[in-house]
Amino acid sequence: MQNYSFDDTHIIDMPLEKVLTTDNLQVFYGDNHAMHDATLEFPRYRITALIGASGSGKSTYLRCLNRMNDRIATVKGKIMYRDTDINSQNINVYEVRKHISMVFQRPNPFAKSIRENITFALKRNGIKDKNELNKRVEESLKAAALWDEVKDELDKSALALSGGQAQRLCIARCVAMKPDILLLDEPASALDPISTAKIEETLQQLRKNYSIIIVTHNMQQASRIADYTAFFHMGHVLEFDETEKLFTNPQIKATEDYISGNFG
């Protein structure tokens, strides 16, 4: 593989209102330095895509943002959210994850009914009123564009859903908690193109009320849905810009090679 300089970076300052920023974020798996100095600012009510080859550290980075790496890796640096460094020791991680929610690569609905999949977290957070629960179920399923497909079978097992439906249920499950930020780790990579299109449509809808950070392998997907895009390479963030600029006029050689397919 061609060697690209890690000093050569192009990272813009976020002109919009910021919802989350990371300052010099570093990740270590034991002695392995997996993420170097990731300093990024994420806009509110926009979609930001993280792109890069496998092993570039984008998923690792994403998992830091709601402390999912706690037991796996050592994370140094600052993650600022609501003027609080949520990467510090004394932070209540359970509260963090209520507000910064995550959807995973493989659809992972619980072996419960569709309704219970959504009410699970709500009930654990003290919402007991039936009407309120039903309202949240409907709202979140509508937000995830799944309501019309499942409204008559809410009490059927979620495991009977197709991959795309299951993934949208997982998004609805997060949305029901009314988080600030949705983190998505390659949410469409296990799905067929039609399901992928639906997920993308859903994300476009959700963008109005949520700040979304999405890891994706699929560059077309990033260019279709994201407002901002960050390019990761071997544990470094090399470029961060408006999606259109990054794809049409990349400032860094590595980004250019990656998006044009000349990488490696």
Binding site: T84, Y94, V96, H99
Partner: peptide, 19 residues
């Protein structure tokens, strides 16, 4: 806004259950 910031920094029922 401040409510959430406070929640982030203080232990909750969940953390006590954890301990």
């Amino acid at each position: 806004m401040d409510e959430i910031k406070k929640d982030l920094q203080n232990p909750s029922k969940a953390t006590h259950q954890d301990y």
